[in-house]
Design a protein around this nucleic acid. Structure first.
Length: 672
RNA sequence: GCCGGCAUGGCGCAAUUGGUAGCGCACCCGACUUGUAAUCGGGCGGUUCGGGGUUCGAGUCCCCGUGCCGGCUCCA
């Protein structure tokens, strides 16, 4: 064994003594750098006390790096678990991985955690952090692990799963057991005694001290063991952890900002929509202010569809069950549909069935109806691509726990289109649809997109493999040609075909699934759709399903959050409010308002007996884009004074110029 | 669907150990006539989500239902 090893640190070679740790080497390299929390050795993350071998390549990983943050958060999860077992010795450990912005740990406990428990646990975590416990890795055999963790049934289960693909065993389970040897991490006190231990793959930060005061417990919730509703529920504690208190505060500020933008909150503050209990969960009504936004969205969409070669159709909300038998929905999504209404049955006097009656269903999708429109007469290849568009309202029986504001509802209107084309046209048509979709989303103010390709779920599909392959390949080509980032989503497809979905990032960086474009060879088959080809033969068309907003309700919610309620003028429910300095100036503003109305501008004049500053406050809070103020001076000059939502002003603008500016802002979809 | 929390005028909130339901905003009326985010005074408004129970007495405690919130599972 050589006394000296040759290792590579950050690209350059070094001679070090046998037994040198990654941490010691990196400390020599970066003497001032206290942010190094783990090392990447030959591409694998290792603890700093990992002993180097000849030929190792070592890179520092800092706490602010994505990997460094995950390690920090994973270590925070261990500190949480230690605190929990200190207060609740009977608590059994589940798993505790890092997640986006934080971590969680699942426990089997006698009673769920209370908000008070969270406070107590956070204090105990703080104590453990201050104690400066070290994390020490220890390799163990399966049998040793089983013996040490005899009191931890869930960990034993994970040990049993090792090698059978821990990644499938449970989301996050891979942080506990990897594919190779089992390891246990001991938390060591200063005096070397073991404070706590956990089956864990690691790596970890060298000491709990690194958690500083940059962590917090955020909430508790139940979670199914190993992610399956067939399993018992554990109690999950969520936390967040950051390299510093300032970053923790910045994160909490981001959450507060998201809350201020919450469409449910803005929806009631701006009087846009509500969910009356009397109607039922997940069923929205739009108030006049929200209705006008929705109308502006829909009107513009209609106009674009008209120009894009779509034809407008309408279909009912309810249908006999057979339609969804044919389409396959009743086989695949019965659980997600409102239960049947059984109609028209007749019983004889003695109760025997004279006429069996029929089941009617609320429609969960529009496509079967559109297929019937296609099939209503013979179709020629000359008609293809045939693009049928509808604002189609559908009803889905979402489980009670998932209904959420406008983004997950039980009744929604899709801006739904079904395009029927030949296989030859399919590629060009998909390209055109994707272009159309992205262009329209941009017109509504979203700019930042990526694509997701959802492919066949082996458990849930109809049709032949060849057809799926062709459909998937086509979508992949079209997606690639768009130049946007493409993320795979294996198993995410609907039963009838693969899909591309457009994900949009909003103003504060959150992503939302917007449009979906699905290719479908199956429904045309099931509905026996055909057209006559140039040679006189009957051919099967290909079907493209495409929703652009996803649902109008959902898109409405996303736009509300994207703009934080500060809608661009073309979408703002009230575009202009005239504010007189005193009663004497009301008439002047009413004349200005009349001119604006000729251009279909939504304008009001506030002639109430509030004082001017109060009116400014009121309408600024309502986020009206243009306030037009007029007093002595403006009236005398035939002018108005603009005040914008950010408080800036543009005074003494001639009335015609003012009208022109406002109309232009609305027509160009500008933000002001 | 599962786990936990919550539900008080239109909105945001308050109400000791179970003891007469209050406040701000909004709304209505009146006075004031004013140049860039709250003028003053007065008034209306609640079967405390619905139903049942415990109690001399329930906004408060218990049960059922409905709805909302946070997660889990799900999301055509």
């Amino acid at each position: 064994m050589p006394a000296h090893l040759t290792v590579t640190a950050s690209g350059s070679e070094h001679q070090v003594e046998d037994g040198t740790t990654a941490g010691a080497l990196l400390a020599g390299q970066h003497p001032e750098d206290r942010d190094i929390v783990v090392a990447r050795v030959n591409g694998e993350l290792r603890d700093l006390d990992h002993v180097l071998a000849d030929g190792d390549e070592v890179e520092p990983v800092r706490v602010g790096d994505p990997d460094g943050l995950s390690v920090l958060r994973h270590s925070a999860a261990h500190v949480l678990a230690q605190a929990v077992q200190q207060h609740f010795p009977e608590a059994k450990l589940g798993i505790g991985p890092p997640v986006r912005d934080g971590f969680y740990y699942d426990f089997d406990v006698e009673r769920p955690f209370t908000p008070e428990d969270l406070k107590t646990l956070e204090k105990t975590m703080q104590r453990i952090v201050k104690e400066g416990q070290g994390f020490r890795r220890r390799a163990v055999s399966d049998d040793e692990a089983r013996e040490e963790l005899a009191g931890e049934p869930y960990k034993l289960e994970l040990i049993g799963l090792k090698g059978s693909g821990a990644a499938d065993a449970a989301e996050g389970a891979s942080v506990e057991v990897g594919a190779g040897e089992l390891t246990i991490y001991d938390n060591l006190r200063r005096d070397g005694s073991v404070a706590w231990k956990d089956l864990c793959r690691g790596p970890h930060v060298p000491t709990t001290r690194l958690l500083g005061n940059g962590f917090a417990l955020t909430r508790s919730a139940a979670a199914y063991w190993r992610g399956s509703e067939k399993n018992p529920q554990l109690q999950r504690l969520y936390g967040t952890a950051w390299p510093s208190k300032d970053e923790l505060k910045a994160y909490q500020e981001r959450l507060a900002e998201a809350e201020r933008r919450d469409h449910r909150r803005l929806g009631s503050e701006l009087d846009l929509f509500s969910f009356p209990d009397e109607i039922g969960s997940g069923l929205a009504v739009f108030h006049p202010r929200g209705g006008v936004i929705r109308k502006a969205m829909e009107d513009y969409s209609r106009e674009r569809h008209e120009r894009g070669g779509y034809e407008f159709v309408y279909s009912p909300h309810i249908t006999k069950g057979n339609l969804f038998q044919v389409s396959g929905h009743l086989d695949w999504y019965r659980e997600g549909m409102f239960p049947a209404m059984h109609l028209d049955a007749e019983l004889g006097a003695d109760g025997e069935v004279r006429k069996p009656g029929q089941d009617y269903y609320l429609k969960p999708m529009n496509c079967p109806m559109h297929n019937l429109i296609f099939r209503s007469r013979g179709r020629s290849y000359r008609e293809l691509p045939l693009r049928l568009f509808e604002f189609g309202t559908v009803y889905r029986y979402e489980k009670s726990g998932v209904v959420h504001g406008l983004t997950r509802v039980r009744g929604m209107t899709q801006d739904d289109a079904h395009i029927y084309c030949t296989r030859e046209q399919m590629h060009a048509e998909l390209t055109g649809v994707l272009e159309f979709v992205l262009g329209l989303l941009r017109d509504y103010g979203l700019q930042d997109f990526y694509l997701e390709l959802s492919t066949k779920d082996p458990e849930k599909y109809v049709g032949s493999d060849e057809v799926w392959e062709e459909a998937t390949r086509t979508l992949e080509e079209v997606a690639a040609a768009s130049g946007l980032e493409l993320v795979p989503d294996p198993g995410g497809a609907a039963f009838y075909g693969p899909k591309i979905s457009v994900q949009a990032r909003d103003a504060i960086g959150r992503t939302w699934q917007m449009s979906t474009i699905q290719l479908d060879f199956n429904l045309p088959e099931r509905f026996d759709l055909e057209y006559t080809a140039p040679d006189g033969t009957k051919q099967r068309p290909v079907m493209i399903h495409r929703a652009l907003f996803g649902s109008i309700e959902r898109f409405f919610g996303v736009l509300t959050e994207h703009y934080a309620g500060v809608f661009p003028p073309w979408l703002a429910p009230v575009q202009v409010v005239g504010i007189p300095v005193s009663d004497a100036h009301v008439e002047h503003l009413q004349q200005v308002a009349a001119k604006l109305r000729e251009h279909r501008i939504r304008v009001e004049v506030d002639a109430s007996d509030d004082r001017m500053p109060k009116k400014i406050r009121t309408w600024t809070k309502q986020k009206v884009p243009f306030l037009l103020i007029a007093g002595e001076e403006d009236v005398a000059n035939g002018a108005v004074s603009f005040r914008f939502r950010d408080g800036s002003q543009d005074n003494g603008i001639g009335v015609d110029e003012a009208v022109r500016r406002i109309v232009e802002a609305v027509e160009t979809h500008a933000q002001v």
